[in-house]
């Protein structure tokens, strides 16, 4: 495929119109043929902007998503659980790194994206604005939040943009593992003492609806959906994925011995799906606007980490400048 650089040259030569449409046609054909678009390929500006927005938001969600779980690392009730939780939070930082790298292939930079996160110009998943109030919340996040994320992300492994699709293959493998661990954590609580069972039920009660909101607004209100589906960034509609998730969760909840907090939840023979109650979209929009329980706290903590770490990054840069080697970064894979 032709490159973006070639495209810019074409503009400079004043032959823009025909060439752009030729590039557009080649792009459309590649997408239709399920070929991967790669960083050096020409792509429509709007496609690039949509991907930057989506991948950055995804990366930010991994980074902010470390906080509600890290909240319990120092209180994990057994050494085994502590190790699992630490490994999970570490994986999330790693997922953030993959995703920032994927975003960088589109011509943006990690520093720029982090700055947009810190100043509220880019968003992260609204789910991470809910607090983790008990140990069982760690399990509920694994089972429901990671479960919803996987339902959303598995189709992204076939996304038309190559670097994003490849990042998702790696991420989904690890997420599936986290999800099973969360389920197993809840199962232990559910089968434990009466207090533990109650703790598990309370966590599921609080996380169920926010998890359903992770799929985004209903199809008729989803601004970007149609275009993203045409570009094969998105493969299924919000409501389709939400329905799939509900259908998966119902039997899992049964085998956990826990109930889902929705009196309207019932199997619909005719549709071959579960019917479920209405989502509180007012709450969803409220959290999205920054008025959720933890929005301020999450961003404040992220900015604190960044601001307090500035002298460390400056030191690494100064050292690298003096000695001509790589600055920050893990010294080991």
């Amino acid at each position: 495929m032709a490159t973006a650089a070639a495209h810019r040259t074409a503009h400079a030569d004043g032959a823009a119109q025909e060439d752009t449409s030729a590039f557009q046609a080649a792009f459309d054909a590649a997408v239709a043929a399920e070929e991967r678009i790669e960083p050096r390929d020409w792509m429509p500006d709007a496609y690039r902007a949509t991907l930057v927005r989506q991948i950055a938001q995804h990366a930010h969600s991994e980074i902010i998503g470390m906080q509600p779980e890290a909240n319990w690392i120092t209180r994990a009730p057994s050494l085994r659980r502590k190790a699992i939780l630490m490994a999970k939070v570490q994986d999330e930082a790693g997922h953030g790194l993959y995703l920032y790298s994927a975003a960088e292939t589109l011509g943006t930079g990690r520093d720029e994206l982090l700055d947009k996160l810190h100043t509220g110009r880019q968003k992260y998943s609204s789910i991470f604005n809910y607090p983790t109030l008990t140990w069982a919340d760690v399990g509920a996040i694994g089972w429901l939040v990671d479960g919803a994320a996987i339902t959303n992300q598995v189709p992204l492994c076939r996304c038309s943009y190559g670097p994003y699709a490849r990042a998702m293959v790696r991420i989904c493998k690890e997420e599936s593992f986290h999800q099973r661990q969360g389920y197993e954590l809840l199962l232990s609580l559910s089968r434990g003492t009466a207090e533990q069972h109650a703790m598990a039920q309370d966590a599921v009660d609080r996380w169920w609806w926010p998890s359903l909101m992770m799929f985004g607004p209903p199809d008729d209100e989803s601004a970007h959906s149609a275009q993203s589906m045409a570009w094969k960034i998105k493969r299924h509609s919000n409501d389709e994925l939400r329905q799939r998730f509900v259908d998966i969760c119902v039997p899992q909840a049964e085998s956990l011995g826990l109930t889902l907090p929705d009196p309207a939840l019932v199997w619909n023979e005719e549709r071959g799906h579960h019917d479920f109650g209405p989502i509180d979209w007012t709450e969803f929009h409220d959290v999205l606007k920054g008025n959720g329980p933890c929005n301020d706290q999450r961003i404040a903590r992220r900015r604190q980490a960044h601001d307090e770490g500035a002298w460390v990054r400056e030191a690494a840069a100064a050292h690298a400048a003096k000695h001509g080697n790589a600055g920050t970064g893990a010294t080991h894979a």
Binding site: Q90, R313, A330
Partner: peptide, 20 residues
Amino acid sequence: GEWAGLAPVLEEEVALANIA
């Protein structure tokens, strides 16, 4: 483990958790 989410750079989130 107390550093989780507070490291000066993302690579250090990974490294400190790894050591922990």
